[in-house]
Computed example of a mutant assay.
Amino acid sequence: MTLSPPAGAGPGRATARHPFLDHPAPLAFAHRGGAADGLENTLTAFRRAVDLGYRYLETDVHATADGVLVAFHDATLDRVTDARGAIADLPWSAVRAARVGGREPLPLLAELLAAFPLARFNVDVKAAPAVRPLVAAIGAADAWDRVCVSSFSQRRVEAVRALAGPRLATSLGTRGVAALRLLSWARLPGGGAGRTGAGRAVCVQVPERHAGVPVVDAAFLRAAHRRGLQVHVWTVNDRDRMMSLLDLGVDGIMTDHIETLRAVLTERGAWPGAG
């Protein structure tokens, strides 16, 4: 049985506006491949998620000093690898020697796209130098239908859109998210795409709360869905919060705890192939 949003949650889930979103919601995203095991953003992590049945993988990109696009979250290698230094200051020849958890190499985004040709990738572009290599990598793999680009930087989202055009899916930028939250509080009807930037985005990807202020609630979902935007929430690792958000009617959840989310969706008959 597939559960519908409860009464009061506003219109049903948004219709997919791009091939990236062509799977039935709610979508399950393996955040950094499933970061809970300590091998985040590695081929091993992503392969484990795919083997569990995940169709959506979330990752991040930085560019090395010589312009090589690496799938990695932090600006520096220090936290999760056995090496040190800022990726932007190091050549690929140095970065490729680093090992996540002391044993796993950093993959290139191009390697991930090639290794998992049926998976969809949500890519957070972490720094301006990564914008052009990212668009080039997507183009080289002809992966326009299976990549969505997001960023905490409005400027980076706009730069990607300018280079790639409408063939690439992007999430709503930070200014658009703030505008959408304000519109939801004002309970304005649909429209207002110019104020939110919804005309160029296919989804909005947000935390449940930010700086103590609720972001995702029934009013926010109504405002997003009326503008044709799916709502994906990150990073949700608690089973009860997953259940509450699914009951609310969110369109996707990103998690580090990929077994937990898979179990929750399977119980609800919403895991791909369940039932």
Rank of each mutant, 00 (worst) to 15 (best):
T2W: 09
L3Y: 09
P6F: 07
T15L: 06
H18P: 10
P19K: 10
L21E: 15
F29A: 13
N41K: 01
F46E: 08
R48T: 14
A49K: 10
V50D: 11
R55Q: 11
D60E: 05
D60S: 07
V61N: 02
A63S: 13
A63Y: 10
G67N: 04
H73A: 00
A75T: 06
R79G: 00
D82T: 05
D82W: 07
D82K: 00
P91S: 01
W92V: 02
R96M: 07
A98R: 00
L109T: 15
A110D: 15
L112Q: 13
L113M: 07
F116E: 12
P117I: 02
V125W: 05
V125N: 04
A127I: 02
A128P: 14
A128D: 14
A136E: 15
D142V: 07
A143S: 12
A143Y: 15
V147G: 00
V147R: 02
S153G: 09
R156K: 06
V157D: 07
E158R: 15
G165N: 09
A178T: 05
A178N: 08
A179H: 06
A179I: 02
L180T: 04
L180R: 10
L180K: 10
L182K: 09
L183H: 09
G190E: 03
G192T: 00
A193Q: 12
R195S: 08
V204P: 06
Q205T: 14
V206L: 01
R209V: 03
R209F: 08
V215M: 02
D217K: 02
R222Y: 06
R222D: 06
G228F: 07
Q230Y: 01
W234L: 05
N237G: 09
D240A: 14
M243D: 14
S244G: 12
L245D: 07
G249S: 06
D251W: 03
T255S: 11
I258G: 09
I258K: 13
L261P: 14
R268M: 01
G269L: 00
G273Q: 01
